[in-house]
């Protein structure tokens, strides 16, 4: 699994793992039913404490993104939960405002920002093994 964590980042490590897994899910890099590495293996791969990985997995399981099957391992849920619109929407609105203010500061206009967004989309999806899975919001 291509996860990269930064110990000095703003987010605690377990949240970084959670975010990268949910991003991978959103973009299609992780597919429903796919098997995740055990928390021990992931801990050794990322060189972090196994308990941290376990915490991330536990939280994701609570949110019903992934599930543990006894004796078989951890898998991405076949049926992904619907993310609550309101909380994410606020974050998206704030991010959009930030993006626009930054762009205007350097002299870009709205068309430039839209082009930048399209470029970001293609970068995110370029190594996916299929079409982007759109989460119903």
């Amino acid at each position: 699994m291509n996860l990269l964590i930064h110990p000095g980042d703003e987010l605690p490590i377990y949240r970084q793992i959670m975010r990268q897994i949910t991003e991978a899910l959103a973009v299609g890099r992780l597919r429903p039913g796919e098997k995740l590495p055990s928390h021990r293996d992931l801990a050794e791969e990322l060189v972090i404490a196994p308990l941290t990985v376990k915490k991330a997995y536990d939280e994701l399981e609570l949110l019903r993104f992934i599930e543990t099957q006894r004796g078989r391992g951890t898998f991405v849920c076949l049926k992904q939960p619907k993310i609550k619109m309101s909380a994410q929407r606020e974050q998206i609105d704030a991010a959009a405002r930030n993006l626009l203010s930054l762009a205007y500061l350097v002299g870009l206009d709205l068309d430039d920002v839209v082009a930048t967004l399209k470029k970001a989309e293609s970068e995110l999806t370029h190594d996916v093994r299929g079409p982007v899975r759109k989460t119903s919001v």
Binding site: P7, G8, I13, V47, I48, A49, L51, T52
Partner: peptide, 10 residues
């Protein structure tokens, strides 16, 4: 080494 502490510490 705080980075190491954050990696492995609880």
């Amino acid at each position: 080494y705080m980075n190491d502490v954050e990696r492995i510490g609880g």
